[in-house]
Amino acid sequence: DMKRIIAEKARELFICCDKEEKGFVCRRDMQRLDGELPLTPEQLEEVFDSLDDDGNGFLTLEEFTEGFGGFLGLNVDP
């Protein structure tokens, strides 16, 4: 089903950011994407802030999946 496919895709993309497979993405991980993605460090920071719902400085797979679902215009329960 669609939600599961999206959740799986979100997981794949999450792993691109969480290269050490810690289970979360921190600001430092995000800044490492500078050079890999056509975004400025400021934009990466902005992305991090908007995905980090509770603002605790750690981006979980759940938060990431929600953000990805929102980007696709869907509500996804991981």
Partner: peptide
């Protein structure tokens, strides 16, 4: 889309981020 330009909407930046990640994953 305005993503990538200064003053782009937050939504645009997010879309740019996910699009870039997706094309990085599926690209060559």
């Amino acid at each position: 889309m305005d993503a990538g330009k200064p003053g782009a909407t937050n939504e645009g930046v997010l879309a740019n981020f996910f699009n870039s990640l997706l094309s990085k994953k599926s690209g060559p």
